[in-house]
Design a protein around this nucleic acid. Sequence first.
DNA 1: TTACAAAACTAACACTTATTAGTTTTTATT
DNA 2: AATAAAAACTAATAAGTGTTAGTTTTGTAA
Lengths: 196, 196
Amino acid sequence: MSKIVTAKNTSKKDAIILRASGLFKNKGYNAASMRELAESLGVEAPSLYNHIGSKSELLQAICFKVAEEFTSQLHQAEISHKGSQATVEAIIRFHIRMMVEHYDEVFVANHEWKHLKEPYLSDFLNQRRTYEKKLVALVEKGITERVFRNINPYVVVLNLLSAVRGLEFWHRHKNKVDTQELEEDMVTHLLTGMVN
Amino acid sequence: MSKIVTAKNTSKKDAIILRASGLFKNKGYNAASMRELAESLGVEAPSLYNHIGSKSELLQAICFKVAEEFTSQLHQAEISHKGSQATVEAIIRFHIRMMVEHYDEVFVANHEWKHLKEPYLSDFLNQRRTYEKKLVALVEKGITERVFRNINPYVVVLNLLSAVRGLEFWHRHKNKVDTQELEEDMVTHLLTGMVN
DNA sequence: TTACAAAACTAACACTTATTAGTTTTTATT
DNA sequence: AATAAAAACTAATAAGTGTTAGTTTTGTAA
């Protein structure tokens, strides 16, 4: 009937993935049907297969795009050779920005990764473990440099990741707290609760 | 073939609900099939319907059991007329204990509630909103009494709930951090980062 | 041992799912 | 205007879903 509308410089595949992110976030991967996705794009379900290979490919695209962005930003932060505190702050701010600007994709990567098929599931979990380990190492380094307090670095990383993930709550209370204020408060609190 | 085995003082329905909690947690509500649930109980799927009404009834039972426990504990804490700080501490500790002792059920209530059917979905969300509001009010009271710092109470509650929910991460790192140490560290950190 | 109820079973249904095949329409290029 | 490629469509399929009906087995009490 109609056609899939794309913003300029984005392929139709990208348009589909973007819609899938919102749908998967709202209903969960399994409850979201291809018919539903197609309808939200103004198209019949089989038409999608002119642009994509399968439903699970959509989930893979979302999860690995997010994982890659976090991984590459962490890499940038590591090789920037700033101090430990500035590095951690940059990472926190990046997490917050991702959570605000790419909420749907990050949410899906956080909640629906378990529906990835092998070998993608193992791959994803490995990337995640690696990411967490690097974060722990970064905090440990800061501790030996006496930039950070001597708190169990696993607990610190757990608190950092929990706090930014907690922005999911905030997304349901947007009106209550201003965005910029939230970001500053959160960074300040997380850091000054941690820095010597 | 065989029979559903129950611990003493628990009905077969309760045994099914307990198994369903683990299954729903691991695979998600939609991906978990009744045949799978039945198999894990050593029984054929239709046999389950001698004890339960429907699949969604299982989800309801899990979600509302958890919601009720949190609600009633909050009520107990409120009428105990301890100081604001002691009250908040009791609530945090209860959250942590629930997360440790009833991980599966709490996880399902946190992640799979969106698959509840109406009117249960609205009911659940209302209970949740009420809970959060009471928590905010409690923090506000502490602020006016100058027991707590003057931080945006929504942000404080957000951080509290995020932190305890973050124990999901810890469940995958159990070996790295001792349980008791974790609880004490977390309470101390959350409170002394908040108390005057 | 007989009788009754609880709880298992098999078979089947109605429905939804992702996906494929084959065809027609649309779009772009010569 | 003719042609080729892209992308839509309709129809259909195989697999999986929760659930019901009807039947048989199991456990319990008289």
